Amino acid sequence: MPTLLLSDIHGNIVALEAVLAHASGRDYDRVIFLGDAVGYYPDGNAVIEKLRALGARGVMGNHDAWLLTLDVLEGEGYVFDILRWQAERLDPENRAWLAALPWSIGGEGWLAVHGSPCDPFTYVDELEIAREAFGCSEARWIFHGHTHLAGAYTALDGPTGPWVRHKAFAEARNPLKLGPKARALVNPGSVGQPRDGVPLAGYAIWYEEKDELEAFRVEYDIKAVEERVRRAGFPAPLYQRLYQGR
């Protein structure tokens, strides 16, 4: 069952539409969303509506959770100002969909979380943290987001613990084939705000039966996002960073 993997869209409908257009030429049977539909960019409503239309299964991200709990949070700064702006404009049906997201979902041999299997808010961005993450789940394929860094950690059992390596997904197409005894912790990359120095949206398609995955990087109209950010009155660094992929 080929599966489309999307993560960290953050209200960037322009990037999401570009990714879906790119993926339309490839067959997939289901969509798994790895968290953070909202935050940073103005089109949280449109993003959630698109995910709902796709029939996406998903998990809760930290920005999603923050938006839903703004009445009890004491967060300050532009991140929370934007979430308050989005919360005021979020349709009740979209809010209900967001609120129903669990912290993790999974099936035979796979698990989807936002951060780490150990903690949904943990950033898996170092080998040692990845090694700990593998220890918190027995799944062969673990899918996550949160770091906005497209790539995969792969693990193979060694005499004193798992050998863990990392592969970045920086090319237009990035194939990953698992060996018989290997496991993978995969971040398909951020759709809406990449942070690995590559100013391209990221997504992946997982081919479960083949034990293979392809990750892709896709161009999108950053200027159009800039115009949306300006109209909403959000801080300029939010669109400036997109040109650098940071």
Rank of each mutant, 00 (worst) to 15 (best):
D8F: 10
A100N: 03
D64S: 09
G145H: 02
H144W: 02
A168K: 05
Y28C: 13
A23I: 12
L127Y: 04
P2M: 13
N62T: 10
S104Y: 02
E74I: 05
H148G: 05
P92Y: 11
F121L: 12
D91R: 15
A46M: 06
M1I: 04
R195I: 02
V225L: 05
E132G: 04
R246V: 06
I129E: 14
A65Q: 05
A139K: 08
R89F: 10
D157Y: 02
E171P: 01
F169W: 02
Y28R: 07
W110A: 05
G151D: 06
E108V: 06
W163V: 11
A130N: 05
W103N: 08
G233T: 06
F216V: 08
L149V: 12
D157C: 02
L4K: 00
Q244K: 14
A232R: 07
A224Y: 04
L149T: 05
P237V: 06
G233E: 08
L4F: 00
G109N: 08
A152S: 13
H114T: 07
P2T: 13
A21W: 04
N62S: 10
E88T: 07
V72K: 09
L90H: 00
Y78L: 02
C118Q: 08
T122P: 00
P235W: 10
A204N: 03
P42V: 02
E214N: 14
A87L: 11
F216A: 06
N187A: 12
G77S: 07
A215R: 00
A87D: 13
P235T: 08
D119C: 12
Y78H: 13
V218D: 01
R195D: 03
L16F: 09
A215W: 00
R84Q: 09
H166G: 06
G55P: 07
L5D: 03
L6N: 01
V72Q: 09
A65I: 03
A100R: 13
H10C: 05
E226A: 14
V124W: 01
L20G: 03
G107A: 07
E74F: 07
G245P: 10
E49H: 05
P2K: 12
Y123R: 11
H63E: 03
W66D: 14
K223W: 09
G192K: 01
D125T: 05
G25D: 06
K50T: 15
R84C: 02
F134V: 03
K223C: 10
V229F: 06
E214M: 15
H166P: 01
K50I: 10
V59L: 04
V186L: 15
A56V: 10
N94I: 10
P188S: 09
V14S: 01
P2C: 11
Y153Q: 06
A87S: 14
W163K: 09
G145C: 12
P180K: 12
T69C: 06
W206Q: 10
G161H: 11
L185W: 02
E128V: 13
I82M: 10
D43W: 07
R89H: 07
G135C: 04
W85N: 03
H144R: 12
L68Y: 03
G115I: 08
I205N: 06
A182V: 00
E212L: 03
K177N: 09
A184V: 15
G161C: 07
G44S: 04
A215H: 01
E209A: 15
I13P: 00
L178W: 08
